[in-house]
Design a protein around this nucleic acid. Structure first.
Length: 445
RNA sequence: UCCUCAGUAGCUCAAUAGGCAGAGCAACCGGCUGUUAACCGGUGGGUUCUAGGUUCAAGUCCUAGCUGAGGAGCCA
């Protein structure tokens, strides 16, 4: 019996006869010589057949293989500088080949395709090497997020996906029928996190969230994954210190562990390499001055109009990009206007028109990747805020309770996973950062 | 929701000023012993998004709609 190996491990089997199981990624033949590129999920290896050496029925079978046919191949693993693949530099001299299923003509060719066509075939597209690499980077980012939090005393506490009340406004919620009652798909786990910190101190939730925003941009999905840490006794300053250590670890560890994949994607990682603490911090007011300066510098009238901004509103994406471009690292922007932010954010003492909130803006136009704040823990102030924006008090009764039974200062934030993946991989659109994207116009496959 | 652009072969695209609907790739057949999205020769492949209109004549012009892309707003 020859060992069944993974292509990723082929270097350990130089000179040995091995079996691989997988799919035909591409093939080419030159008369009496056939090259098969076979993938098995861990990598791609070139398999070679010479007509003179191979049994006729094996050679014939190899010649008739179609792209993405499934098969097993047994042969001699050997080093060869010319062999392409992942990891490459090794190939298999085929001795035996068994076709499991001869694939029908495969729609995705190794060439350019339009995005609509590719998205219609997303269930097949995930096999392509670029998509394969991106999704492997995604898995590593998820792992590094959890590793760092678990190692620093944060407890994973899951929050519900079906929820009775809105975190924010109901226009951006997906409503569902819950045995006759109105329920919503969660757009945040934060309120539950705030309950959980009183039990566990530092917690996080990590899962899919849902927003019914009619957003049609390169930065939005209807279903996206969010990691939300929440910490008792944390101030805004603690939050920024924690975030910069956390984000830096995610970036640096992923660069290390997925070097090959990032190279395949063609990512220039020089801008990622200097993502290390400390990150620059500027206030909303200073950011506004910076934008004003930027607007004066540019000669492009269109850009001038886009950068127009008045105090009190949140940044649009041209603003975020302009601010982030002024720094060579991610930048914290803190003390946003209270009116532009969520009801539970703590007002700054002596200046209640701004709140103790902070967003982290990524460079290269990737925009806001985290958003967080100190939460209001004074029950009277929170009740007042709930009333002010007209939220149903009953739905928030349990949330208000948290301030009656040992309320403490606390803070937390949300990290958008797909934006993180898009940033690390240098993607032009967030839809490639998730296996099966849900967007305004796509629910299939 | 608004602005801009697009929809032609399985895929990516072309088609002069309104005048016979084409190429490359893929598929199929043949050739080639080191290919890297191979190369060379051959074959088949069309409801030009839909509905109406103008015209001797519409892929091309007009009207309405559908679908998609890019951007804005909103947000992670």
């Amino acid at each position: 019996m020859t060992p069944v190996i993974q292509i990723a491990d082929i270097a350990n089997y130089d000179g040995q006869t091995v079996t691989i199981r997988g799919w035909l990624y591409n093939s080419t033949h030159k008369g009496k010589l056939i090259f098969l590129q076979i993938r098995d999920g861990t990598g791609i290896v070139q398999c070679v057949l010479f007509q003179r050496e191979a049994p006729p029925e094996i050679f014939e079978a190899a010649l008739n293989l179609t792209q993405e046919s499934s098969l097993t191949v047994t042969g001699l693993a050997r080093a060869d500088e010319r062999a392409p693949g992942i990891p490459g530099k090794f190939e298999i001299g085929v001795k035996d080949l068994h076709v499991i299923q001869l694939a029908e003509p495969y729609p995705i060719q190794p060439k350019e395709h339009g995005i609509e066509f590719l998205m219609d075939h997303r269930h097949l597209w995930v096999r392509s090497s670029r998509q394969w690499a991106i999704l492997r980077v995604r898995a590593t980012i998820i792992k590094t997020i959890r590793d760092w939090l678990d190692a620093h005393g944060y407890l994973l506490v899951d929050t519900p996906i079906i929820s009775p009340a809105a975190g924010e406004e109901t226009t951006t919620l997906f409503g569902i029928d819950y045995f006759g009652a109105q329920a919503y798909l969660a757009q945040t786990g934060q309120l539950y996190n705030e309950a959980n910190i009183a039990a566990f101190g530092k917690v996080y939730c990590f899962g899919p969230t849902f927003r019914a925003e009619k957003s049609k941009t390169r930065r939005h999905l209807s279903e996206f994954w969010m990691c939300e840490p929440e910490m008792a006794f944390f101030t805004l300053e603690d939050l920024m210190a924690m975030e910069e250590a956390f984000i830096s670890y995610i970036i640096q560890t992923t660069l290390q562990e997925r070097r090959e994949e990032l190279e395949m994607i063609g990512r220039d990682v020089t801008r990622l390499q200097n993502v290390t603490p400390p990150f620059p911090r500027i206030s909303y007011d200073d950011a506004l001055d910076l934008l004003k300066q930027r607007r004066e510098e540019t000669d492009d009238p269109e850009q001038k109009a886009l950068l127009e901004m008045t105090w009190g509103t949140d940044f649009g994406s041209p603003h975020e990009t302009a601010i982030a471009e002024s720094f060579d690292k991610p930048v914290f922007v803190y003390h946003y206007p209270s009116a532009a932010k969520a009801f539970y954010m703590t007002p700054v003492e002596g200046r209640p028109e701004v709140c103790r909130s902070v967003d982290l803006l990524a460079p290269e136009g990737y925009g806001e990747i985290t958003g967080g704040s100190e939460r209001i823990f004074d029950v009277e102030l929170l009740e007042q805020r709930v009333a002010e924006i007209g939220l149903p008090r009953e739905a928030y009764a349990w949330y208000l309770d948290l301030r009656r039974f040992g309320g403490v200062p606390h803070a937390g934030f949300g990290l958008g996973l797909e934006r993180m993946v898009a940033w690390v991989c240098g993607l032009s659109h967030i839809r490639e950062a998730v296996p099966y994207p849900r967007t305004l116009t796509r629910l299939y496959p």
